[in-house]
Design a binder for these strands. Structure first.
Lengths: 329, 329
DNA sequence: CAAGTTGCTGCAACCGCTTGCATACTTCGT
DNA sequence: ACGAAGTATGCAAGCGGTTGCAGCAACTTG
């Protein structure tokens, strides 16, 4: 591995000059610069990022923590974060908590010290734990609200309200909500939006769960749904909704006839499901991109947005899993 | 940020001792060690990974390059790699090439210098470029074969053969292959396996493409399929297959009746599609896990597996998108 | 023409940790 | 009781860059 010193002697300058050629080119004389760069790539020199990090006290890395990489919502989020980070010349660390709340804090803490900033997507840890992390590294939260910490939120209240309105218009006199993870801010949002909308429509509200956002959770949820005589169900997310549909079909309950099912996320899954899933669209990629931009602002000392959470809108996409209530037909 | 020195003065020992307490505890006297650790966590000291990396010349990081994070195949692969890396105490860098061949080499090269090892999933770059990268960092390839470079391969020949056999048994007298990316080793494998199997069954073989592995590619591919009078089609992957199905339904061609469609990957998408997609199962997660283990062996100097590629098997999962050829009914 | 600028480069300390070698103190064998 | 072997710690030189400060030459300016 060729170092700055070798380039220096070969080019007949001091190491400092070589360093400056790479870090602040404008301060070195153009002909010297020319010579140094030429020697540098003749020797195949490239700056050692680790050494540089140590000297300047920045790593040039961003970190991203998600509950589940394979969940389409997070997959798209990750993708956007990665693109945005690269554009800013930063590399991206990724870690997954696999929805295990306990591992989360030490994991994030370990990562916090080797990155310049962190985005936590749907963290499940406690407020105080997050506060401690904020002391270590700049942090932007996604779908988690905490006073004084930058965040981008997708409250999904609009979308959920639209979903319930839609069910009400179809004549359903109640709906059940298949709740997501207990410590999820998003879950709380959805629950209260649905509950509120149900009250306004004088519809009954039932809750089942909590469920991990997995296909199998939905499968497991279906039988109790039937047993409870439900006619309309809103799932925490598409993945769960699809599990429900799958089991419902097995039980020969016709989805989009006897039972209306609504998901959340509008993942690619929703459109191709059978029947196509009515769902609430959630801008995952947008959220990721915005989070990185907030983080960059934070790093640059620009106090973006006055520290207020950035909120992103959601809306209902009606497809074929929702139909008039059997009683209303 | 508290350093090793502060701990040293506070504990009344030299910095070297503190360092040893954290890196080689067994060589320091147990009572000293006790005292140092106690002081350390009273002061909230944690070793600076960057400094450590610089001193010992290892970063403790692994890198993973994938064409497309949001593609379910890679999402599961990433997940497995992440889990495996964490288990080994290594952090994981992820970068995506977004199927853009041109960016790939510089991107990987940049990453190669800040990691201890790299796994390249389905790289599209040239053999010689990969060879250059191998000089910089230990590399394990996934779905790419290169003499002298460790790799884990999913040739999918078995699965493809089974797929064609299946079509033949259903009375199809030909099949079309919707090809994947031109520079993809996987694509070449699939193509030649299908072609070979068609020849054995005296079936006609037609190829269309190449297509990027995206839903829209499949949508685009459907009309030419109909125009060509095809009765059976094997797509490069599930994502493309689902695009085809979607457009076919729009055109009111009944999939699993007039047209048989087979995908590859057995992503969660396949099972929930409408109708459920016949597909070739590909062990994405397994591939990721094995790749990391090979990489760790490489790093430890163990020459795993004698440098031979590890091959993972595939098999056909028959669901509802394949049916007897219309003419054979 | 002296004094003050300006532009470029080098010196050397430093970022926080690791580690080969030297040192000092024990312990043991004879 | 004395040298050898072993154990625990400290010293100091790195790892590969960065950067404040000083030095020097060439240029202005009054």
């Amino acid at each position: 591995m060729v170092t700055i010193n070798e380039v220096a002697v070969e080019a007949g300058v001091s190491p400092s000059t070589v360093s400056r050629v790479f870090s602040r080119p404008e301060v070195v004389n153009s002909v010297t610069r020319q010579r140094v760069t030429e020697v540098a790539d003749r020797l195949g020199y490239t700056p050692n990022r680790i050494a540089r990090s140590l000297a300047i006290g920045k790593s040039g890395n961003l970190g991203l923590i998600v509950p589940d990489i394979a969940n389409p919502f997070f997959a798209h989020l990750i993708k956007a974060v990665q693109v945005e980070a690269r554009q800013a010349g930063l590399a991206l660390f990724i870690a997954e908590t696999d929805e295990h709340r306990l591992d989360e804090y030490p994991l994030v803490k370990a990562m916090a010290k080797q990155v310049d900033g962190l985005v936590l997507a749907s963290p499940r840890m406690s407020d105080s734990q997050i506060r401690e992390l904020v002391e270590i590294a700049p942090i932007v939260l996604i779908n988690r609200k905490l006073r004084g910490v930058q965040s981008v939120l997708i409250p999904s209240a609009d979308g959920m309200r639209q979903a319930v309105d839609h069910l009400a218009a179809l004549g359903h006199d109640g709906c059940v909500y298949l709740a997501g993870p207990r410590n999820s801010w998003t879950n709380l949002q959805r629950r209260s939006a649905i509950r509120g909308a149900c009250r306004r429509h004088a519809m009954s509200y039932t809750e089942m769960g909590p469920f991990e956002p997995r296909f199998e959770s939905g499968v497991r949820a279906a039988d109790p749904l039937i047993a409870a005589g439900a006619t309309a169900v809103i799932a925490y997310d598409d993945v769960i909704a699809l599990g429900v549909i799958s089991r419902l079909s097995e039980r020969e309950v016709r989805v989009g006839r006897e039972m209306s099912v609504i998901g959340v996320d509008d993942s690619p899954l929703a459109a191709i499901a059978c029947p196509p899933l009515t769902t609430v669209r959630v801008p995952a990629a947008k959220a990721g991109a915005v989070a990185v931009r907030l983080l960059l602002d934070l790093l640059a000392g620009r106090d973006a947005n006055g520290g207020l959470p950035t909120e992103l809108p959601t809306d209902l996409i009606v497809r074929s899993t929702t139909a008039p209530a059997p009683a209303a037909r």
